[in-house]
Design a protein around this nucleic acid. Structure first.
Lengths: 141, 141
DNA sequence: ATTGTCTTGTTATGTTATTACATCAATTGC
DNA sequence: GCAATTGATGTAATAACATAACAAGACAAT
């Protein structure tokens, strides 16, 4: 599933996320887009749904917030997700509770171990969340 | 940190969770405890905070809901968490989106890989969330 | 009995997410 | 052309999740 060109609202939301150093809640995004004519949460949530579907944005479950996808295509194993676009098995996040910065990474061994567990139980995984909350090197120093 | 005896509210909340086949939201718990004198969300959230601290209850971030801790002391490697009580490095969850059942497990290899990543980045982890959403064997059949 | 600490009760409010319905624009098939 | 379909948008209202602030009770230690 390759993404089509973004609509106006999708572009606006994505730009806000890309420019941000830290994850943003839907309502924070809404506030930043008031001047662009946004009035209601749904305008944000609808754009976020699509962007997430396209793999351009991730939802951080432990934060109820969203980040632009940060991983470089180049640093990757080359594997494409089932949905096309740039994709890995599962993306993991390390979230600094001090400065808010989000580190995005993936680990094949972890993916493999979780897959093994699922297979052994007959569990059919649809979406996996891995989030480490803590303090980044810079903030810990 | 060993847990003290539970208070009345903590016991009531824990009992509700233990009897449930699926995770419950704080507000669902509140409704189930109306007859026991519960009137406000905070009564539930306060109990949940403590129970979580004691390791008796887990919060499922992708669901905004709570489950009683399901793992047997016996099936474990014996490692105790830093907080005492029964504990592992990180507990992972597989959540059936069809029947709601939650499978709780842990995997040392996964823990180790995530630790390795953290160490390599100087990131100090505080709490790690691993949740697999999908469909369990029974429901997939 | 006074102090300190922990638990509880209560009201109000803040934050996150969705339902329902109307409208508009682009595309397709006839 | 022009209905029919599809997808994006706008708007209001509401649902669902969570916390702040403050008052009061329970209980142990001195």
């Amino acid at each position: 599933m390759m993404q089509p060109a973004l609509t106006k609202n999708q572009s606006l939301v994505f730009d806000v996320l890309e420019r941000s150093d830290a994850p943003l809640s839907a309502y924070t995004i809404l506030d930043k887009l008031r001047d662009n004519g946004f009035r209601a949460p749904l305008q944000v949530y609808r754009a976020l749904d699509k962007l997430t579907e396209f793999g351009m944005v991730h939802r951080l479950e432990s934060l109820n917030a969203f980040v632009a996808c940060a991983h470089r295509e180049s640093e990757c194993c080359g594997a494409k997700s089932a949905h096309g676009g740039h994709g890995h098995g599962t993306v993991a996040f390390a979230i600094c509770d001090s400065c808010g910065h989000v580190f995005e990474f993936h680990d094949h061994t972890v993916d493999h171990r979780l897959d093994d567990w699922s297979k052994s139980k007959g569990f059919k995984p649809a979406k996996t969340t891995i989030e480490i909350r803590g303090v980044c090197a810079k903030c810990a120093a």
